[in-house]
């Protein structure tokens, strides 16, 4: 699905994240020293302060930890989207991601809803990790 929504400018620290997404994988950072998984990307580990990290694939499964419905148009690229849901997904592996939920009716969205990763085309070169309800 192509979208008129924002095509993210990819900062150097997120290049591995988007490279993996392009190939259909969700990856987060892992501290090489203590093994703690983290996201968003940071240059050092908040647990052991090590600067050594790598990117590692995760299951892409999790549940909705919290959410809100954005009704206000803050940016013209989202004018046609409101109201849209912003969700915090708790991944099975630990880190929490702030993303959107796609293919989810308003009354279906709740805290605890099982979700899985999906990928949204943003322009010709970018696939953005997104989430959708995990259905049996």
């Amino acid at each position: 699905m192509m979208s008129d929504k924002i095509i993210p400018t990819i900062p150097p620290e997120l290049e591995p994240f988007f490279a993996a997404a392009k190939e259909g994988r969700l990856e987060v950072q892992r501290c090489v020293s203590c093994g703690t998984l983290r996201f968003p990307a940071r240059s050092l580990c908040a647990t052991c302060l090590s600067t050594q990290s790598e990117w590692t694939p995760v299951s892409g499964r999790g549940e909705v930890y919290s959410f809100f419905w954005m009704h206000q148009v803050y940016h013209p690229a989202f004018a046609a989207e409101v109201p849209y849901a912003v969700v915090v997904v708790q991944l099975e592996e630990g880190p929490r991601l702030t993303t959107n939920i796609l293919d989810c009716a308003k009354d279906e969205l709740r805290v605890g809803l099982p979700v899985e990763v999906t990928f949204e085309e943003r322009g010709p070169d970018v696939r953005l990790p997104q989430f959708r309800p995990r259905r049996a």
């Binding site: 929504k5 095509i7 993210p8 400018t9 900062p11 940016h75 989202f78």
Partner: peptide, 12 residues
């Protein structure tokens, strides 16, 4: 307006 900085903006 499509190119805007940051992951948060990408998610609105």
């Amino acid at each position: 307006y499509a190119h805007a900085g940051g992951l948060e903006a990408a998610y609105g």
